[in-house]
Design a protein around this nucleic acid. Structure first.
Lengths: 357, 357
DNA sequence: TAGTTACAGTGCTATATAGCATTAATATAA
DNA sequence: TTATATTAATGCTATATAGCACTGTAACTA
């Protein structure tokens, strides 16, 4: 979000990819033609090549060309694996959800006698240092998955969780967000809600898209119209939950229920609605997603979809182990169901529009 | 024989010589001024400096300058340091405070070209594996500091933060909790509060003791009696904040202000009091500790003591670096002041008992 | 006095351009 | 055929310039 990727890194990644895909096996195109081809300036491409040479990926023979260095590293088993969190969600450590994930992963690692270490985004040089000490990596990336993962992949096996890369060769473990949301909609409709608001997360990511998609499909399944004014674009933060709630409350026809793409926003929404004198669930039913620790403690306890963190950890770890052992996993892409947990923040609408049961 | 020496090599040699002759001992002139001084272009000088940085002769701190790397290479081998979090507060990753700390540490590490890795409690065998890959460790331990630290100490230098060990040879960086609390009490008393409740954290630890001690001393300074019923034993969790608030509200003579040993409890307290129909700050003034992210976002924004996380990170890192380089730090125990940030969750008591200013 | 704003300095990225040295292939000349 | 020049391609060095992001400080304002 804030960090724009330097172009020379893009070029590096591109070259790496070409090598990985065997499109380049020995000699690279000349620096100038590469520059033309990619649309970057000569000096930029040169810098990228320089770096790769420094890394040992490539080597140069003056007047002849630049070549791929084909000798491989030996992989040593350190029995340590890393959990990587994209810096764009590094504040994500603040996000209680990632704490759940981390704890679950650690538990799983301990069970298999692995040690888990957490690290986050850093420059390639440091990444190299770290990866040399790890057998494998489990990564949470929101955006630019490929950017990160490709760089890691050269050094260690990777499994992505909670998101999936366009490059389908990268194994992933995700939540079935779509069906979790249609379930939520089924539940709310069965209570009689007919105007249901949705507070999105970051809709660039798969997670965001699928939760929104589940909401929309849920509406159509129950023959409810899709109303743009009932969708608020949040960003997963408590603060945006506050905003969103204020927005919904200000509508001429406010919804009777608000579905939030995560718990932090749901808590923010409850806080704001409370403050403005509304009662929950009488005036608004609130539903979250993740089931973070406070969700069950807050008053009223939050109805939310429980992310199956332990299962995610288990599957991700199993996948990673297979990759480390150079086995071929049966299934490289796993989607896990998530279950709605009904607590007290949701109820039938009191506005009297109780419909079908 | 006729091979002309590249200018950037001349520049490199020049810089090397300056360092050797002690004409440059720490900070280099800026790249631009160096270019002017030597009569070469900026990019040429930059290339020379780039190379020296890659060699490890120099290191850069963006926005600050470029510096001579005086440390011997063999001391710090991995340029990776660990942040250890006692498993008793491992849920602490859930605790937003430790996220703040972690982020601050990482920033500081990056600035000195170190990589930070997070790990937590595990058996000695694994601890050994990890420590072999680290140059040093910064540790947060609540209980049994010695237990953990001694085991780490054999393998790598350690600095403890937010707590101090009985063994005074272990360096530590802590917050001046005591004075932070007396400041808080001064503030509340100046508003006219005379019955002030305190919600403790875990009182086994230094942190817990000193915050409680500051509260008590604050009372006596303002000639207020120490009343056991006004002290609730919490455990830093949101849930115990809920409990504590319920307890205070149930008293025959409830306090007009509640000081909480951290923000999570303060948020829990606000939630509960809200729920029971009390207004904040009219019925209860609430003060927290830490200044976590949501503290400023919640309604009403929370008055709290801001933990100086960036300073903690800076000092801890400086101490650790000294230990890694086997220098003798001037001061092995550092206490940093924390500042009260007044927001809207605190005000003069409305009960009419406004006393001395 | 305390908070805010503006600015200057730092390193970082990016591009355009110009010419050098070396090599291999090709064309030309003996 | 052999030798020599030409040419194009490679990587390498060098400079000028423009703007970004971050940070600490100095000046300003409330």
């Amino acid at each position: 979000m804030d960090t724009t990727i330097p172009k020379y890194l893009l070029v590096e990644d591109h070259i790496r990819q070409q090598i990985r895909q065997r499109k380049i096996t020995d000699r690279l195109p000349g620096e100038r033609s590469l520059a033309n081809e990619l649309g970057f300036s000569y000096m930029t491409v040169r810098k990228a090549v320089d770096n790769l040479v420094a890394e040992g990926v490539l080597f140069r023979i003056p007047t002849k060309g630049t070549f791929v260095n084909n000798r491989q590293q030996n992989k040593s088993k350190t029995r340590t694996i890393g959990y990587f969190l994209d810096s764009s969600i590094k504040a994500g450590l603040t996000s209680p959800y990632y704490s759940l994930i981390f704890n679950a992963l650690e538990k799983e690692a301990a069970r298999h006698d692995y040690t888990l270490v957490y690290f986050t985004d850093s420059e390639t040089a440091k990444l190299k240092t770290i990866l040399g000490k790890l057998d494998g990596v489990i990564a949470s990336c929101f955006e630019r998955i490929e950017h990160y993962v490709q760089r890691i992949k050269d050094r260690a096996p990777v499994v992505v969780i909670d998101n999936s890369a366009a490059d389908k060769s990268i194994p992933s473990v995700i939540i079935d967000n779509f069906n979790a949301l249609t379930d939520t909609m089924d539940y709310l409709c069965s209570l009689g809600h007919q105007r249901i608001g949705f507070m999105t997360g970051l809709v660039d990511s798969d997670v965001g898209k699928n939760r929104l998609g589940g909401y929309q499909t849920g509406l159509t399944r129950h023959e409810l119209p899709y109303d743009e004014t009932l969708v608020f674009r949040g960003n997963y933060s408590f603060a945006s939950g506050l905003e969103g709630a204020a927005y919904f409350a200000s509508l001429a026809q406010p919804p009777s229920a608000i579905v939030c793409a995560n718990d932090s926003m749901a808590l923010g929404a409850m806080s704001r609605l409370h403050q403005e004198g509304y009662r929950i669930p009488e005036d608004f039913s609130i539903v979250g997603f993740d089931d973070i620790e406070v969700a069950s403690q807050v008053i009223p306890p939050l109805t939310t979809v429980a992310a199956p963190v332990q299962e995610i950890a288990r599957e991700a770890f199993a996948l990673l182990r297979a990759l480390i052992e150079e086995e071929v996993p049966q299934n490289r892409h796993i989607a896990l169901p998530a279950k709605l947990i009904v607590r007290e923040s949701s109820a039938a609408p009191s506005g009297g529009n109780t419909a079908a049961a």
